[in-house]
């Protein structure tokens, strides 16, 4: 039963279907590998997958596990190994045993590596799985801001009143805390709006440098992640019409490095934060020729920085 989604994915890409018993075995082996997954192995598998390769460490780990469980060697077409590479990750995300934090981190890793396929999605295998993997971060973020009373209801009750009794609100202490928290979050939102009016921000001439600096502040100084809001609206507000400006990655890096102060350049995880690493290390990478708008660059960088906060 559990192997049905695996069978469907494999059958779609082979001329000759694999034996059902073998598919069940492959599922069992993949399932047993879930417990051993960590951020490093996930990065390795996703990176290979997005480049149409199979991770050597995955192939070896799978071979060893299969032999351990079934006492035999298994020879699989390369495409099946690639499917299995992602299947292990999918099983981890679907598992009740894996913590939500870890799932969010895995989801961000998958999102960040997807930049390797930007503009060239057709050859990507297991597209439904990838889209499902993206969604785990959204679920995690949405869970962070659960509140029993909505923000505008609180505003309308508190602002016209002079004391608590006047508000007519009958809410628990936890709900009061939730509301205070949501008001503080609105403060974060205001900080961003305030910053983009400052000369420090306005004096940056490149929109790519502007988004880099703004995103750094949003993630590192202002804990924007707790708002669980997409950065898109704020980036558009900050950049005006310049959000559409489009450049090749290598040129974007030059512009960013020309204007951004060194203390904003970090030492990211080179593998899962490719654009950040490209900026901070200034070493050419395979996707240097890909084009990004200032807004796209900002969104990618934002989620890479977010993933970095999990690593901190």
């Amino acid at each position: 039963m559990g192997s049905k989604q695996l069978k469907q994915a494999i059958d779609k890409h082979l001329f000759i279907s694999l034996d059902d018993e073998l598919i069940t075995q492959l599922h069992e082996v993949a399932n047993s590998m879930v417990a051993d997954l960590d951020a490093v192995s996930v990065s390795d598998y996703v990176c290979s997958f997005m480049q149409n390769n199979v991770s050597q460490s995955f192939t070896e780990a799978f071979r060893v596990k299969y032999k351990e469980m079934y006492g035999d060697e298994v020879k699989l077409p390369a495409i099946v190994s690639r499917i299995l590479e992602m299947y292990v990750i999918l099983l981890a995300l679907q598992s009740d045993e894996i913590e939500e934090d870890t799932k969010a981190q895995i989801s961000l890793i998958v999102r960040n590596y997807a930049v390797l396929r930007k503009g060239d999605w057709n050859v990507l295998l297991c597209q439904k799985w990838i889209i499902e993997m993206y969604s785990y971060y959204e679920t995690y973020a949405a869970d962070m801001v659960k509140s029993s009373i909505n923000y505008s209801q609180l505003l309308d009750a508190v602002v016209p009143s002079e004391n608590w009794n006047d508000t007519g609100l009958d809410i628990t202490q936890q709900a009061v805390y939730d509301q205070i928290r949501s008001l503080c979050m609105a403060g974060y939102y205001g900080r961003v709006s305030g910053y983009i009016k400052t000369s420090a921000f306005k004096n940056l001439t490149s929109p790519f440098a502007q988004v880099y600096v703004l995103v750094c502040k949003m993630v590192k100084e202002w804990n924007w992640k707790y708002l669980s809001l997409s950065p898109v609206k704020k980036l558009v507000e900050a950049l005006g019409e310049n959000y559409k400006r489009k450049k090749m990655l290598s040129n974007i890096v030059t512009e960013v490095l020309d204007e951004v102060q060194k203390d904003l350049l970090c030492v990211p995880n080179e593998k899962s934060s490719m654009l950040l690493a490209r900026v901070c290390n200034n070493r050419p990478i395979a996707i240097d020729n890909k084009m990004f708008t200032a807004l796209e660059f900002g969104v990618y960088i934002y989620y890479e920085m977010l993933l970095e906060t999990f690593n901190d």
């Binding site: 396929r117 930007k118 057709n122 990507l124 597209q127 889209i131 993206y134 796209e296 990618y300």
Partner: peptide, 20 residues
């Protein structure tokens, strides 16, 4: 003729479209 990829794969573009 390759089957068109699911547009949701380009998650950045999707997020931009949704927010704008």
């Amino acid at each position: 003729t390759s089957v068109e990829a699911a547009k949701e794969l380009d998650w950045v573009r999707m997020e931009i479209e949704k927010q704008k």
